[in-house]
Each structure stands twice: as C-alpha cells, then as structure tokens.
Design a binder for these strands. Structure first.
Lengths: 338, 338
DNA sequence: TTTCTTTATGCAATCGATTGCATAAAGAAA
DNA sequence: TTTCTTTATGCAATCGATTGCATAAAGAAA
C-alpha cells in the first residue's frame, strides 16, 4: 500500500543516483553486475513499477493505437478488432477503442481526444456520413498515421483497406443469375457510405451486363436491419411484387425477409434464392443456411494494424489495399445451375 | 506538419510565460479576457494540441481503464465491452482491451503491463484457471481498483459482479422438469472456472430437489463448443442413451447437438427439449429457436464500469454484486406443462 | 613513475503541463 | 501622499524516467 515508489526511492536506499538505477533496470551494459543485482533486489522489495507515463513523455510516443468504429456489437467489427488486438499485442501496442454510435459528432470528439498525445496512430471505420473530413485532415497535418478500413472516406488522400465491394457484389448477383434467376431484387444501404454505395453499384453493373432491366420496386433503399428487411418482404407480398432472388447488402435484413417469406409459404431457395453480405455469425444457422459474402474481418483487422505499424515506423504504405473476399454459397442459393 | 507545438511556443510568441498560457487555455479566472483571447488565437494558429501524457504525469492518473478478457469474439464479451465502453466514455474514460486467449501467462503479462501506470483501474474476466491469483493480489497491494465480472476468482477478497449462475441453472432445469421431463442431461464446462462450476452445481441441486438420480452418462464434461456438442449427441445416439431434455452450460454445444439430433430424425422439442446458456446472437435464429439464459451482458458491462468508477473515486463498493438473469423460453423448450 | 585507456557512475537537462506562492501594477481608501 | 486591496502575471518546483556528456577510479601500457 502507501505511495508508489520511483527510481529515486531505489537510488536513495542504495546511495546511488537515479540515472544508475534507470540504467540498471534496463540492463544497460555500462552498469556493473553487482549494482544491477542490488537495484533489482530493492526494486522488488519496494514493489517498484515502471511509470509508463513518464517513459512515454520522454520517448514522445505511447505505443497505443486508437480504433474508432461505428459500433462494437456487429460480428464484422468485433471480429476485426479481434484481429487488430492480436496483431497489436504481438507488436507490443495497446488498443484503445471508441465507438461513435454512427454519430459524426462523437467521431470528431473521439478523434480529437485521442489525437492529444493519447495514441500514436489510428484505425478508423467512418460513420454514415461522407462530406466532412476536416477532423481526419487535421490528423494528416499533425503527421499522425491513419488507416481506414471497411468504411473509408471517399477521397484518395487517405490510406484505406477493404475488400472490393463492387466486385464481390457483382459476383453475388452473377451467382444468382447463373441459377436462372432474372427478377433479382436488391436491399441497399445509405449510398453516402462508401461500402453501401459500392455494393449497390456492383448490383447495378451486374444487372446491366446481364441485360436485365432493373424495374421500379426492385431496389429497397436503407434496408439494413432485420425489421426493415421484414417490412420489405411484406410489402413485396402485399403488392404481388415477388422476386426470384434477392441480393442484400447486409445479412440482417435478409433474416427478416426470409422469415416473412417462409411464413407466407414461399420456399427458399426454390421460390426465392437469396444472398447476403457480411457472413454474420448466425448465417450458418438459419434455415436454410444463408449464402453470404465473407469479408475476412479478422484478417482485415490484422492487416490494418500491420499497415498502420509500417506507417508509424515511417515506411511508405500503399494508399489503397484490397483484400480478397469470398462468396460463401450455402443452402439459401444452392440450386442446380442452368 | 513539422514539430508539435507546446504551451512554450505559444508563450514565446506572445511574450508571456507558459504558466499564463496553461491557465488561459484552461479558462482560469485569474487570467484576463484579453490574454485568453490571444492565447486561444495563437493556439489555433500553431495547431496546438494538449499533451495528455504530460498532464497525466502531473496529475498522476490516466483516465484510462484496462479490460482483460479471455476472448473478444463471443457475444457475451463483445456485448459487455460495449456496455463498458459506453459507460466509460460518458465518464470521460478511455478503454484499453487485452485478450488473454485463455492463457494465464498472457493474463499475467497483460495485468503486469497495464499496471505500470497505464490504467487507473481494471475490469477483468479471468482465464480458465483457478489457483494462481498472485497477479491480482499485486494490484490490490498497489491500491489499483479491480472489478471482476462473469468469471471471477473463487476468493472473497475481490470485488465481483455476475449473475447468480447457480439459481439461473436451477431455474432452467426446473423449467425442463415442469414439462414432465426427467431424463435431463447436462453439458458442463471445466469445473475449475467459477461459472461452469456454479452452473453444474445448479443442475445437480435442481435434480436432487426433484428427486431425480443423475445416472452415469448424463453429464458431459468439457462440452463447450459446437463440435463437442455434436460429438456428445452422436455418442448418445450410438449408445442408445437418449435424453428427454438437455441443459447446457453454453449455447454453442447445443447448436451442434441439435443439428446431430435433427439429422437422425429426433424432433426438438417434442422428443428432446433443450435449454442453453448465454443468449448468443444466433439463438433466436436456429430452428427451432433456442431457449437460453440471458446474462444481460451489456448491463453487466455498464455496471462493472460504474462500480469500478466508484472504487477509483475511493468510495466503498460491495464485494459481491449480483445482477438479475432471465430465462428466455423459446421454441426449443416450449411445450405444454403437466 | 607517468600517461593512456577502460569501466562505472554521476550531473544536469529534458519531455510538457500544472500550481502554490510571490509580486508588480493598478486602483481604492485614508 | 501613503497604505491597503485587488487583479494579473511570473517564478520555480514538480510529476518519473532517460541520456549525452563529464569524470573519478582502476588498471594497462610505456
């Protein structure tokens, strides 16, 4: 109990100076073995702990990175953080997490606060807003490295790491088309966010290439959660606007839609084949199990840290890193091709 | 770009001292409005950022807490951290996360490292090991507050917050018994971890009270993941040792078991009723949906921080905090009572 | 013995910000 | 004019650890 002890306490007890103690504790070659032994002995006796803050102040860094994400309770994010944390701890870095709860104000506050010599670098997935990058530019100006992942600002000036959402979405649509489906509907997200924009763009591109005209009522905007998906499906049923397939920008709404369709006797995949996005943890367990696009979130997290580390060490890093994705075909779209 | 600016740079530029600048920036009442205005102007001009490390060193704290958990990619933990992070950010605290990957060595390393003036307090869920608390005692000795949650050391000397696993498990078993089931099997975890121990104890207690003798082959030890659950079910089928119900200490093995049973034509819940534990995110989406015990993980995280904060502020905190649990009855055990 | 080299330790400045105390300047009271 | 009070600012120590440079002591070489 009592007060924490410092190197001065050890020095005083041994009648030597703090510099010697400091060097002894760090096993500096100039210090005699005899002194090292005594210093370590007294350090243990006084329950000495190195004061990391003081070291950080002297060293000018914190060996801590900040992770700023919209929310933690999505499999994608918790899994990415898992990867970040693993890579970081291996490199001797700590990870501070800030959730923005999809609120730009909170994002700005978090970035501002962590940039006050709290972290050496950032890994960020931006909030649902596209226009205001001033707080990120400030980081660049101060020379604080930043790596964006998944949701990145739509501007070339930042380093970003993601999968190729456009191609992955095209692939998903092509997969559905290869099963003979043409009335392929789409659940879209807010187009001001890079990833939703890209996924919808991929859908449109594939449809165009297939020569299928997207009729009005095929694309459902801002359909990102379970309830929205359920309502969308109910609306389709009510208006007799039944798809042969759905490509959804997220797994969650599909869950709601599948439930609504099954309740009305539609068979999946026979009547309606579906592919989601995100490989959420529940997708293997739905009935039928859900086809989906996997983003290798854990791997993305790991690589985000690796690139940030390089950037913090002063090495140049490519502006844009694209990781491989994977279309996981499960029962919800498992049909003989034609 | 260039070097970061400090209060000395501002002071020099204005021909005043750093003390005045420091006070002006913090809006101290002794400083004239004129000087404050000028200081803030120059601060903006030089892109000045407060150096948190220096402040921390002076203040003797970091306004950061450490969260040490076995793994991040479990709904329970990511959700609890969600709660911790929310409460912490409200109180102006940062959260550093360390995963121990169920390895005591890593746990010790994390605690040791963070205790070197990196964090002001800890929220910990311990690793699968029960005997070695030296690293936690060291924290107590140094006067660093710690709150354990969910998995706590089995010793009265620490502050812990959890649900009443014993009662929750009893309740789950009683619920199955109320449906007329007597051959109630149990998937157990490693008994050296408090929570698994308590859950198995709850199962045994309920069975005893019901007057049902637990025959050999009813309890499956160390059955905590999907594969183990699947293998357990296959073994039951192979040995014609079929239960009427299963109470599992975790949702994951039940998922495997349900799948194995369904494959062999057993109906759930008609033939075998099951209740899991943890309210994992997939439980509403299995078919049939899975009954389970909810631990209010988000709330537990929030409260863990609240108690830690009190403890850090020097207020006394009760040694043991028990939160309410909830038995969520879904289709997998939804049967008329008798 | 004198000079040089090696070894081990200490001196003092430094990283930025904070803060108790001192004090100059200005104004008020006598 | 002198003394007292108020206002605004500066001085200097401090939080712990690090590190370039200086130097004393011991041993080696001449």
């Amino acid at each position: 109990m009592g007060k924490k002890s410092s190197i001065y306490d050890i020095a005083q007890k041994l009648g030597i100076t703090a510099s010697t103690v400091s060097r002894a504790l760090r096993d500096h070659s100039n210090i005699s073995d005899e002194v090292k032994r005594k210093v370590n002995e007294v350090a243990k006796e006084l329950n000495y702990k190195r004061n990391t803050i003081a070291v950080n102040l002297k060293q000018g860094n914190t060996r801590t990175i900040g992770v700023v994400i919209p929310q933690l309770n999505r499999h994608f994010f918790s899994s990415a953080i898992n990867g970040i944390e693993e890579a970081a701890s291996e490199a001797g870095y700590n990870v501070i997490i800030c959730q923005t709860r999809n609120d730009v104000t909170q994002e700005k506050k978090a970035v501002q606060m962590l940039s006050e010599s709290v972290v050496d670098g950032f890994i960020i997935s931006v909030v649902t807003d596209v226009s205001d990058y001033a707080h990120f530019r400030t980081l660049q100006d101060q020379g604080i490295p930043v790596v964006f992942f998944d949701r990145y600002p739509m501007s070339d000036e930042f380093v970003r790491i993601s999968i190729d959402d456009f191609s992955a979405s095209r692939e998903a649509v092509m997969h559905l088309a290869s099963k003979g489906r043409t009335r392929i509907f789409h659940f879209a997200g807010d187009a001001s966010v890079s990833i939703w924009h890209e996924r919808t763009r991929g859908y449109c591109s594939a449809m165009q290439e297939l020569g299928i005209e997207i009729a009005p009522g095929w694309i459902f905007k801002n359909t990102l959660n379970l309830e929205a998906g359920m309502r969308a499906a109910e609306m389709m049923i009510a208006t007799h606007n039944i798809p042969e397939a759905i490509f959804s920008s997220s797994d969650h709404p599909l869950l709601g839609a599948m439930s609504a369709f099954k309740k009305q006797g539609f068979r999946i995949p026979e009547d309606i084949a579906v592919v989601g996005y995100g490989n959420e943890i529940f997708t293997p367990f739905t009935e039928p199990s859900m086809s989906t696009v996997d983003q290798h979130s854990y791997e993305m997290g790991k690589q985000a840290f690796t690139h940030l580390l390089r950037s913090m060490e002063g090495t140049d890093v490519p502006r844009q890193i694209v990781l491989p994705h994977e279309l996981i075909v499960r029962e919800s779209s498992f049909l003989p091709g034609c």
